[in-house]
Design a protein around this nucleic acid. Sequence first.
DNA 1: CGTATCTTCGTGGGCGAACACGGAGGGCAG
DNA 2: CTGCCCTCCGTGTTCGCCCACGAAGATACG
Lengths: 368, 368
Amino acid sequence: MCEHGIIVYVEMREINPKIRIKDIAELAGVSEGTVDRVLHQRGDVSEKSKLAVTKVLEEMNYTPNLFARSLASKKQYRFVCLYPMHQPGEYWENVDKGFDLAAIDFIHHNVHVEKRWFNQFDSNSFIAVSNEVLSSEPDAVALSPIFREETIEFTNELTKRDIPFSFIDSQIDDVDFLTYYGQNSFKSGYIAAKLLLSELSEKAQILVIRTHRKGSASNQTLARNKGFMQYINEFNLQEKFELINVELNNDDENANLQTLKEKFNTYTNIKGAITFNSKVYRLAMHLAALDHADVRLIGYDLLEKNISYLKQDVVSYLIAQRPDKQAYFTVRDMCRELIFKQEIRKINYVPIDILIKENIEDYMYFTE
Amino acid sequence: MCEHGIIVYVEMREINPKIRIKDIAELAGVSEGTVDRVLHQRGDVSEKSKLAVTKVLEEMNYTPNLFARSLASKKQYRFVCLYPMHQPGEYWENVDKGFDLAAIDFIHHNVHVEKRWFNQFDSNSFIAVSNEVLSSEPDAVALSPIFREETIEFTNELTKRDIPFSFIDSQIDDVDFLTYYGQNSFKSGYIAAKLLLSELSEKAQILVIRTHRKGSASNQTLARNKGFMQYINEFNLQEKFELINVELNNDDENANLQTLKEKFNTYTNIKGAITFNSKVYRLAMHLAALDHADVRLIGYDLLEKNISYLKQDVVSYLIAQRPDKQAYFTVRDMCRELIFKQEIRKINYVPIDILIKENIEDYMYFTE
DNA sequence: CGTATCTTCGTGGGCGAACACGGAGGGCAG
DNA sequence: CTGCCCTCCGTGTTCGCCCACGAAGATACG
């Protein structure tokens, strides 16, 4: 009977990894409880039993049934997600969606995803919310490090309390985070330059839009800018393309329109324009109003308005970075680390997706 | 006690959808068994009870714990996947990976994924394998319809036996399939034309490579070709670009090299080249050998060799279609349909991904 | 040699759902 | 009134795993 059991399981090994704790116990000549103690390193096991179990575990290539595990376990997990509050249609809304989806997907593993927002233009708001998060004692934290110093202070506190945390969208190198999901901004700036400039065969002027965040400019846009410049330097295009810096602001669109109008009066050979933040739609809007739709436009992120201008051929390229996946995978990896005890990768650069009028539709469709 | 229960669950509704059958039963004033009968439409329930249960189900927004369900269910599922046998490094290897991953992910839902291969150059091989599949009585079949007529015969037989089937990679419209995952080939041909031609500012000759499959040319490549031509016609580029058709074959690389050499002797202004199948590496190889690396090259699919030439800047663009996801999602949707009883979408066009030297790395990295 | 203490380990109940089994109650014929 | 069938529905077992409880064996000490 016992021999028969062994034969069956050895046969099944390649085909079917459905080995149960019960089987392991039987093969090792111990009880299920002992196997469980070994599996969870809960002690109270003799060296001899432990060895026997470990050996069989190895041989049988045991993988636990994670569903049964979560079903039986009464441990609850709270993952807090900390990122900027936002309006509908903004970049962070896609992050929202990713967290929401993860919340549904992992709820039966006893995971509760809690979203917390702060004002990205006010570091005090971040400090306040992060303190609340701290005192609520979460099991893990996902956050977007908008404010460098304040984030470091927060994550140091988390480290002190043994609460793992993950970065999303951009990272801070000096602290010990669990995962990072985000785009390689430098590269994406380089690619933007390539896409925008390689099709301009003659000398031209290029508008480079900058928007000031109150306080500091974001890491993201700075790095993109650097990547952009790298391309120009690498191919010695300083002569061919004259870069015109334009400062826009977040509130006053009339002023922005005026600013752009002046630029077009001053410079008469403007053939391209780029924004390094997600608001290329604003530029598109003004250029359409000023009757300069022939200017090649490139920008970032799949906001609804951006997509609309892409479809209308006002924007030539959008560079996307799957923010929903970033959020989703961040939560998934927390599960893998804390619940499933699986290997995870620390640094995760998401693809730099190149979207044009012709492929945007299937792209959006596929990701629902 | 009962009231207390109600209050708790109503409170939890927004936050926590962890409503159990037991709760539903209690609220509806019936037993768990009755709820179960209603849920599975297994009959033997009075109109009154059924109504009560349905009402509570609705109100509580009940979603079953799919893990607990699979754990308890002893029903086993066999999904057979039918597609071309292949060498390492070929397109179909990525499909393999997707099926393998799905096999692991869904094994604890009692799903067994079985891969079957046929010779894509021999329709008899397909007929033989498909007959074997039929007699093995699978619960669902995923297949790539390489041979149109033979596939229709097969799927008709499947329909007769109430076995659902899904298409992958390309589809056949006239039969009633469960899902289709694949690229919109016409569009991807159109995009290829745009990418290849829009950067060529002067008159040029373009090599259009064709490879004959024994028997018929594939749907895929034909549609891509059509899309390509559509772009040229739409922008009246017939004058600007002279298309040179080149016929290559699958076996004799020396002959192919010779053929290309002759073309370059005959035509002296060749500036671009495209293949509509996945073997652009072959073209890249020959062009490198003939010292024509300046020719802009575009091709399809992320074979290792293709990627290598992309990284070396011999190939300018690769257009990709996530074959692994196609396979994975096909199996996932079978689970959703047959096991989870969830809504699925029939036609699923996968994104037309545009890869260049600069974004290929993060793309590959992200999908492991 | 009996008893107390510690280490090691087996057993049983429960997680949420599926499903088989059989019991309760009503209707109807004998 | 008894016996039988039919409709409706509650109960109990099972899936693989977790974990609390407490039993058995080993060791120490009076």
